[in-house]
Design a protein around this nucleic acid. Structure first.
Lengths: 157, 157
DNA sequence: GACACATTTCAAGTTCCCTTGAGATTGGGG
DNA sequence: CCCCAATCTCAAGGGAACTTGAAATGTGTC
């Protein structure tokens, strides 16, 4: 472990564009790790940059930090991951992204037919009772729209 | 205003599948409104059901309650909105949804090329420096990934 | 060795979208 | 008229992903 090629938190922040506070938070959450200098300051291995990049991209895909942590845990521990390791992780997102695209397309199409009928009816309209895996689109609690559909009654007019 | 055809908060909750606490919250936020009985209980007009449905669908599109409130404010005040009014509002979402779909498709395609090169490089990879309006995908604070891109440095290796 | 800037920890604050709980009051069926 | 379920208000909690602030300590440079 040549200390010289390790990075300070400020260097990681500058090169990833992620605030030092966020990096400390990521470490606390187990997404990245560091060694300490004699004085107690963090020093990160260079592959931490890629880890952080992975985290940010994964967030764009819509994953929570918890989910991302689980994904990262599957990397070979100890030794720095190679291209194939990263590729394997990234590949796992594809179905997720596809699913989200499909969900939005359904939403769009159903919205069109709702514009057609002008309804937004709770009973008829599948917009309101999504059977699909909408997951966390937009913020808010995860049980959003996930309620018992049988409780939803008749038309709105 | 025939009190008889107004709905109690429990009735609205049951027919929309939205908790009474959420409905009270929506009212506090100006998304819906009610009249009060002599005893002080809320009574909602029937078109509140459609308003609530609109809110939930808009959330699925990814809008914040604030944005939804602004949209609802454009409805004719006082008189109950007709089909055309609702259609006009819903129509406004289309470009938004299209944009989100396009964003995800870009993300997917770029992810493919990143898998190809195995990079996830901060410099080369547009995944990491999104120029698009990714808005709020997934939950979390809104300044997510909204940092100054110029601060992002070189390759990760 | 001094100086400035970076870094440390820890607690608390922020935003969004609600939920939960306590304690008091109301409304409608028998 | 009575009673219990429904509703009321208000304050506080909760989780995700951080940020901010304070007070102390480390590090690199001249």
């Amino acid at each position: 472990m040549d200390l010289a090629q390790l990075l300070s938190i400020g260097q990681v922040a500058e090169r990833t564009g992620v605030a030092t506070s966020a990096l400390r938070y990521y470490e606390a959450e187990g997404l990245i790790s560091s060694v300490r200098t004699d004085g107690g300051q963090r020093r990160f291995r260079r592959d931490t940059l890629r880890r952080v990049a992975f985290v940010r991209v994964a967030q764009r895909v819509g994953l929570s930090l918890e989910e991302i942590r689980e994904a990262l845990d599957r990397l070979p521990s100890g030794k720095a991951p190679d291209k194939a390791d990263w590729a394997r992780l990234s590949k796992a997102w594809r179905p997720l992204i596809e699913e989200r695209i499909a969900t939005l397309q359904r939403l769009r199409d159903e919205l069109d037919s709702c514009i057609g009928c002008g309804c937004l009816s709770l009973k008829r309209c599948s917009l309101y009772n999504p059977g699909d895996g909408a997951r966390r689109l937009g913020s808010g609690p995860r049980y959003l729209l996930g309620d018992d559909p049988s409780s939803v009654g008749g038309p709105l007019g």
